[in-house]
Amino acid sequence: MSFFTEANARTAAEVIARYPRPRSAVIPLLHLAQEQEGWVTRDAMVEIAELTGATPAEVLGTGSFYEMFRFHPVGRYVVNVCTNISCQLLGGEELLHHVEESLEVHAGGTTADGMFTVEEVECVAACTEAPCFTVNYRYFHRADPDTFDAVVDDLRAGRSPLARGAQGDDGNLPAHGTLGRLRQHIPDDRRAGVVPPEQADQEPVWLRTAPSTTSAADA
């Protein structure tokens, strides 16, 4: 019984190795599971529990605290409309109503064709560019109903709408679950070494030896 694909299992092992305690990898692994499936399944949590030394109840307990994790299937594109104070002052609620009306779904729901899930959310961190919405956590600033309609058109036509976000984000807009499209990798020969805290209980070397000479390659 194994939920993660082979490739993701390798990624999972790499992620766990970056933490002094495997338990810390629960949230990153929940993201990985959501990336694989679009939402967090029961099997995913059971496997994450095994990998991190937790019980499935603990994994669900942690995961359910955080909004980004979905425990039921969602649409391919999750549309988050911010209605917090800065956006509210500049029409965020009206934007939300437009989104709901044009997709014919209430906040919290998914369109019948499974393409879009709409959520009303708290501050997405683009306050001076209010009102704004995100699609799979990609930003669309200073959005009005037309912007939203254009983004939906793009997505339905298979085009990337990211240029409309106007903040230098380019490429394709990934399906729900994928956040960063590129991952951190620490090459073995450059790794300082991640160890459990019990094994790192001495004063770090450089506190005694510093300052030491730096490379002749500095500019």
């Binding site: 955080y66 994790f69 000479t213």
Partner: peptide, 25 residues
Amino acid sequence: GYVGRNICDTDFSVDITLHWGAGAY
């Protein structure tokens, strides 16, 4: 050579782990 083992050829070594949150103010 700016992160990881022996940064800039000194004894200073540190790993930086990028960690993602999941939505909670």
